[in-house]
Design a protein around this nucleic acid. Structure first.
Lengths: 198, 198
DNA sequence: TTGTGATACGAACGAGCGTTAGCTAGCGTC
DNA sequence: GACGCTAGCTAACGCTCGTTCGTATCACAA
């Protein structure tokens, strides 16, 4: 009757990573069993080891790739831009946009970074701090040049960054607002926080 | 030689809950074993069951009590206050302050609510939405009265609430700023987000 | 002094976890 | 047509988990 060949051997390393990403985002790293990943992919648990070294490696790969992309986004966004207002606008927009378009990655990074084992934990925490520091410098520069007015650049940068991070928690793609709409509005919030009239 | 009696029978239900709170906040619900809670308390794992019904019950109690307190804080803060600006100021301040002074509770609620089993999951999600709705209404009212200027009260309320939530992630008690300082500054951010000059 | 309730303990359970080992079937290449 | 590579499978491992059971020990009231 034409059913013929079963679907076979379609699983790739990328598919395992993508499924792990989805389930880690839903249930958390420790709340996700490899058997659940295998079930979604339609294979048995041990077969996963043809595509990965360990469960922990999946988490490390997800978080490392995500943090790298965040930093690349940031640098591409502010590269060559001098005006502090425009720098903050662009840095915020790409960060907000990423959290709307890559919700799963954001949820895993923010929830499960503490589940990383050393030495990845230290290395990736440092990578995250690099972005925080660079973002904070945008605000500090603007304060020194008189473009921004804030009591504490540290507090302002945390407030703006975490405001963007939270987009990943409620944003739904076919929703009332597009990712670009949300990013634009959050960019406006960020500028208001640092005292720029809009 | 005076060592005499070992320390015995000092563990109470409250101590179990408090230890669970600390460890859940550090490692997450699924990342915490009952044996770790028992070890901190200096007893064996099965002895925990003299003070609780199950691990899941610990999580439910922590989250339920926290969400109740959040709602009580909110209502006490805005009760009898008419001016939208003052209502938002007070609602934001108590929320920000709570996330600085009750960091562990905030971390568990935001990380491990998805680990709740039904029917608690639905009930407590609804309780959280009650607060979100009430907070959003403060902003909507201010927009209608002309006190605030925002495109979307939904986005603005999410941005402000989650900005406050994130305080729990970086705040340290004996730090450069007191909890009250942080709450005051975040209240300023909130008012700027909704377009109030400060 | 006896009894009662609370709290601790050791032993053990069934289940599930991540992981390894060894084997089999299908594929493209020579 | 034999070969090796890839990716699947079953079986099994050692371990840890949350939980239950029966028992011993203590403080305190009668």
């Amino acid at each position: 009757m034409g059913t013929g060949t079963e679907a076979r051997q379609v699983v790739t390393g990328g598919a395992v990573l993508d499924t792990a990403l989805t389930l880690f985002a839903q249930r958390g790293y420790h709340g996700t069993a490899l058997s659940q990943i295998a079930e979604v992919l339609g294979i048995r648990t041990p077969s996963l080891y043809n595509h990965m070294r360990s469960k922990q490696e999946l988490l490390q790969t997800i978080i490392r790739q995500t943090l790298d992309s965040v930093m690349e986004d940031f640098e591409a966004a502010v590269d060559g831009v001098q005006d502090p207002v425009e720098r903050l606008r662009r840095a915020t927009r790409v960060y907000a946009l990423r959290h709307a378009t890559h919700r799963r990655e954001a949820l895993v990074v923010n929830r499960d970074t503490t589940s990383l084992e050393e030495p990845s934990l230290s290395a990736l925490r440092a990578r995250r701090r690099d972005h925080e520091r660079a973002f904070r410098a945008v605000i500090s520069d603007g304060v020194e040049s008189g473009a921004f007015t804030v009591d504490s650049p540290v507090l302002a940068s945390f407030a703006i960054l975490e405001m963007c991070v939270s987009i990943a928690r409620w944003f739904r793609d076919p929703g009332a607002l597009s990712a670009a709409d949300v990013a634009d509005q959050y960019t406006g919030f960020a500028l208001q926080v640092v005292g720029v009239q809009t």
